[in-house]
Write a protein that binds this DNA or RNA. Structure first.
Lengths: 246, 246
DNA sequence: AGAATAGTGTCTGTAAGACATTATGAC
DNA sequence: GTCATAATGTCTTACAGACACTATTCT
C-alpha cells in the first residue's frame, strides 16, 4: 500500500528545477501622444542578446520585491518614466521557443497610457538610453529586438480597437484640455478623422468631462477647458465609432 | 578596459538559473453549453498541492514538445476532451507570489468553446477524474484549488462581454441548429433574454449562417436548420446587445 | 470686414427594442 | 378548431454621420 504524502512533506521536498521550464519576463508598451503623433518609448539594450538594439521597456520579475506581475510592470515603468500611477492594462502573453535566442521564453505584455507632460525620462540607473518614437500603422522605423515588432503591432491594434468604444484616450490628456484637443488625440491614435459634432455629443453625453470654467486663449474664439470627471472609470460605449473594427 | 563579449560567448555561458524565477503554467477554461446551462470542465488534482480538489484544466509547458504556449493549451485540451480544433482564445495571465503555495507562479489562461456533442471525455491517462459543472454568475458550487475561482469569474465576465458584440456562441453549436437554439445559447451565457426579432435580424444580416434546407421537426411548426457560413471568422458587430456592458 | 477656430441645430441613416401579427405543424 | 412554436411586419428609440449654421476672438 502506497504511503500517503502530506501536503506539508510534499512542499518541503518540492524542487522547482526538476523540469526544464521557460523564463518569464514582463514588457510594457508605453504610449503617449505628442505633436499629433502616437509615440512609444523604446529602450536601448545594454546587454546581449540584441545588444545596442532598441526594444520595448521590459525586465524580469523580482520575486523578492514584486507582489505580482503588474507590480513588475509598474516598477519598470516608474524606473523609465518617473510616473507612478499611469493607466496600465494587461494586453497579452507571448511565449514560444524562438522569441529569445537563449531559451524558451514567455513574456506578459502590458500597455501604459501617459500624458506627455507628466513624463520625466529617467536615464542612468540601468544606464540604458531611451527615446520616444512615432508609431504609424502599428510600426516604428527602428528595427526592434526579440519579437517586439510583432508585439507592438498587436498591442497597437488592440489599442485602436478599444479607442473605438471606450474613453481610454482621456488617460493621455493633461489636467485640463479642450474637447478639440481630446478629439485630436482620438484621431491621432485611430489615424482617421472623426466628425466633430458626433464626437462632442458622445463625450459630453457620457458625462466624461466637466467644465473648469477656464478658457484656452488661442488667438481666435476661446475654447472651454475641461477636466476628467472625478470617480469615472474608463467608459464603455454601446456603439463603436465607425472606423473599420477589423 | 572592459573586454567585449560576443553574442556567441554570451549565449554559451548563459545560465538561466542565475536568478530565482517564477514557474509558468497554462490553464484553460473549457466551456460548453448543455441543458440550458453554461458548463465548465473541472479536473480533480491527483497531486499536492490541493490534492483531490477540483481545478481548471491546466499543466506545465513541455519545452521539448510545445512550440508555443497555445500549443500547450491545445495539447492539454485534447488530452482532456479529445477535441483537436476547438475555438481557443487567450484570456489573461495571472502571476503573483501567493497563488501557488510552492512558489512565485505565473499562469497564462486560455478559454475554449466546444460544442457539447463533439466532446469525448478522456479518463485514465493522467488518472485524473473530470466533470462538467454549471457556471452561474461566474461561479461554480465546487471550491476550486489555486486562484481558479477568481480566474473563472474573470474569464466568464470576459466571455459575457464578448458575446454582447461577437458571434462567439456559434463555436458552441453542433453542425446544424435552429436560430432559436442559437439564441438560447446566447441567452444562457448572458443570463438574460434577447428579443427574438432583433436577434434574427442581427445574425442573418451579418451572413453568419446558411440555410441547410433541412427542417427540425419538433411537433409544432418545423424550424429551419442552419449551419455556420464557411470561411466566416468570428464576427464583430458595431453595436452591443443591451445587457449591462459592465 | 474677413479669417480662423469654437460650438450648435437639425436632418439622415442604421440597427436594436417592443410587440403585434401571421405561418405551420400536432392533436 | 386550439395550442405551441416559428417567423415576419412594422413602429419606436438611440445614437452616429453629415453638414449647414451661428458665435467669439483676432487683425
Amino acid at each position: 500500500m502506497k504511503k500517503e504524502t502530506s501536503e506539508y512533506d510534499f512542499l518541503k521536498n518540492y524542487n522547482p528545477n526538476t523540469f526544464e521550464r521557460p523564463n518569464v519576463s514582463v514588457d510594457t508598451v508605453i504610449y503617449t501622444v505628442h505633436d499629433n503623433a502616437l509615440k512609444v518609448l523604446l529602450v536601448q539594450r545594454a546587454e546581449h542578446p540584441f545588444k545596442d538594439q532598441w526594444t520595448l521597456a521590459g525586465g524580469y520579475i523580482n520575486i523578492k520585491q514584486d507582489e505580482d506581475i503588474e507590480a513588475t510592470a509598474r516598477r519598470k515603468l516608474e524606473e523609465k518614466t518617473g510616473v507612478k500611477t499611469p493607466y496600465l492594462e494587461q494586453y497579452a502573453t507571448y511565449g514560444n521557443r524562438t522569441r529569445d535566442p537563449r531559451h524558451w521564453s514567455v513574456t506578459t505584455v502590458y500597455f501604459a497610457l501617459l500624458p506627455y507632460n507628466s513624463i520625466v525620462l529617467q536615464k542612468g540607473s540601468t544606464a540604458n538610453d531611451s527615446k520616444w518614437v512615432s508609431v504609424k500603422n502599428g510600426k516604428v522605423n527602428e528595427k526592434l529586438g526579440f519579437d517586439h515588432e510583432k508585439i507592438l503591432e498587436g498591442c497597437t491594434e488592440r489599442l485602436k480597437n478599444k479607442v473605438l468604444y471606450t474613453s481610454l484616450p482621456l488617460h493621455l490628456m493633461p489636467e485640463t484640455f479642450t474637447l478639440h484637443e481630446l478629439q485630436t488625440v482620438y484621431e491621432t491614435i485611430l489615424e482617421t478623422t472623426i466628425e466633430h459634432k458626433s464626437f462632442r455629443r458622445r463625450i459630453i453625453g457620457a458625462n466624461l468631462v466637466e467644465e473648469t470654467g477656464e478658457m484656452r486663449q488661442t488667438g481666435h474664439r476661446p475654447a472651454m477647458l475641461y477636466q476628467r470627471s472625478k470617480n469615472k472609470e474608463t467608459h464603455i460605449f454601446l456603439r463603436n465609432l465607425e472606423a473599420a473594427s477589423s
